[in-house]
């Protein structure tokens, strides 16, 4: 899923303080799971912004709502009439949602209330870890199912650097060295031979945007 975190409150306030009618607009899919931008978080953020507006003596009308998803136009349709009554939408969806809503909303700005960060797993409740970089050229079959692109701080392809330190990464003792994990995993799978093969320089062209995919319809495929 997509993981994000709410922006610092002061940054959000600076974005919205000159508007008169603001909708804090949540998304109840990925960003709700990571407690950053679901309906509940949109409601809390709206309350905090109202308090701030009162403190600052700013006449801003602040409301909140949420829909199931911000990444497909059809989910917006039932709410668009209401959404267009505001002069600013403060979206707590991921960046995809902000982009898509900006495209379809017309002459109303859509601002981001969260920083969209990564594709993550939830290994333990309340913890989110980046496990995939969406590079467009998957090599997990060569690395024991552990992605060095996302999980090695240098995205190395041929083993650990000199900064590997008792199983941790040189950038932080809290980050595991992906290549030590890959080594251990491949050893357990009796596939260390795979790690001994040189991985050639990566074709990064598949990882650089703007990317799009057009899925062929079933009929086209069978032709």
């Amino acid at each position: 899923m997509i993981v994000g975190e709410q922006k610092p409150f002061d940054e959000i306030w600076d974005m919205i303080k000159d508007y008169k009618k603001v909708l804090v607009f949540g998304c109840n899919t990925c960003v709700a799971i990571c407690h950053a931008g679901g309906g509940k978080e949109a409601e809390i953020l709206a309350s905090l912004l109202k308090m701030k507006a009162t403190q600052e003596g700013a006449a801003i009308e602040i409301s909140h709502s949420a829909i199931e998803r911000h990444c497909e136009p059809e989910f917006f349709q039932p709410s668009m009439e209401d959404v267009r009554k505001y002069d600013l939408v403060l979206s707590t969806a991921c960046g995809v949602g902000v982009n898509l809503l900006s495209e379809i909303i017309g002459e109303i700005p859509v601002f981001p209330a969260i920083n969209t960060e990564f594709f993550g797993a939830v290994p333990r409740a309340g913890e989110f870890e980046e496990h995939c970089a969406g590079c467009g050229n998957c090599i997990l079959h060569l690395t024991g199912g552990i992605c060095p692109i996302a999980r090695c701080s240098k995205s190395l392809l041929n083993g650990p650097c000199g900064g590997t330190n008792n199983g941790s990464c040189e950038i932080s003792p809290d980050i595991k060295c992906a290549w030590v994990q890959i080594y251990d995993r491949l050893k357990a799978l009796n596939r260390l031979d795979v790690m001994k093969q040189i991985n050639e320089a990566k074709d990064w062209s598949t990882s650089q945007g703007p990317r799009n995919i057009k899925v062929k319809l079933m009929e086209e495929n069978t032709k």
Partner: peptide, 20 residues
């Protein structure tokens, strides 16, 4: 790094560097 801990993954890389 001859005293890398753990050493084995470092040696795999060393051998790749020789091969390269």
């Amino acid at each position: 790094t001859p005293e890398s801990v753990p050493l084995e993954p470092q040696l795999v890389k060393f051998e790749k560097k020789v091969e390269a």
